[in-house]
Structures are given as structure tokens and as C-alpha cells.
Simulated assay, not measured.
Amino acid sequence: MTLKIDITEGPAPYEQVRAQISEQARSGALPVGYRLPTVRGLAEQLGVAAGTVAKAYRALETDGVIETRGRNGTFVAAAGSAADREAAAAAQAYAERARRLGLAEPDALAAVRDALRAAYGD
């Protein structure tokens, strides 16, 4: 696992850690079942606070990318299917809410495009 953190530019360090681990898990560079370093170990390797790595790990676990097995460690989960299911559930909930609000489909889609552009920095 190779991570590069730029503390002078770009997103917050925890977001850089989260994004890089997520991408490596999705691409297969980090295979399902790969054991991640401990929070303290990775923080030391990257030269960041342990809280930074802990926050990234919590976000990754919420996203279904990793799973923590107590004292046994933190591992890459079968992220693709979990992430796909969560995204589909969020999309379904949004579609139902947009319908209840009386939004026309083009307006609901425009809101999603705007939110995605904001999230991805486009």
C-alpha cells in the first residue's frame, strides 16, 4: 500500500487517506482481505496525527470499504458491492424525496448533477 499525503495543498489529510485507500481497494491494488496498518502505524508512516488516520478509517468503514475486526485488525472489505448497494439506496431515497417535493425529473437530475460537481470539485 502506497499513500502520499500533501499537508500543504489539496483536501484535508484524512480525506486524502480515505480517498487513496478507497481508490486502491476499488482498483484491486488492495485486494479484499488485505490487512491495513494499525491507526498508529499508518499515522507514523505518513507523518500525521493518529486522529487523522482514525477519522479516515471510520469514514472508510462507514462506506463499506474496510472492516474492523477488533484486535485482529482492519481489513479491506468486499467494497464494490457494499458501496454499490449504499449508493443505490441513497439514490432511491433521493428519488422518493424529490417526487414527494413535487420536483420534475429534469429538476431532480439537475440537483444531483450540481451536488456531484460540488463533491468532485468540477
Rank of each mutant, 00 (worst) to 15 (best):
A119Q: 03
G102N: 08
R35N: 06
E67S: 11
E15P: 00
A50R: 14
D63R: 09
V39Y: 04
R113A: 10
K4P: 00
T2G: 02
L42F: 05
P106G: 12
A83Y: 12
G47C: 11
A83R: 15
S27A: 10
L60D: 07
F75G: 05
I21Q: 06
Y94V: 00
R35H: 06
A59V: 04
A111E: 14
I21N: 12
G102V: 02
A54Y: 03
R117E: 14
E9R: 13
S81N: 15
Q20V: 05
I7S: 05
G121L: 02
A98Q: 09
L109K: 13
M1K: 10
A12P: 03
R99P: 03
G80N: 14
A77V: 01
I21G: 06
A115D: 03
G51E: 11
D122Q: 08
L3V: 09
F75V: 07
I5P: 01
V17K: 01
T74W: 11
A90M: 12
Y34W: 08
A119E: 00
Q92C: 01
A56M: 04
R97Y: 05
F75H: 13
I7Q: 09
E61M: 14
P37N: 10
D107V: 04
A82E: 13
T38H: 06
A83N: 09
L101P: 02
E86S: 08
A93W: 00
L60M: 02
A50F: 06
V53D: 07
E105T: 07
A89C: 04
Y120M: 06
Y57F: 14
S81R: 15
L101Q: 15
L103D: 02
A115Y: 02
V65E: 10
A108N: 11
A110T: 11
T52E: 13
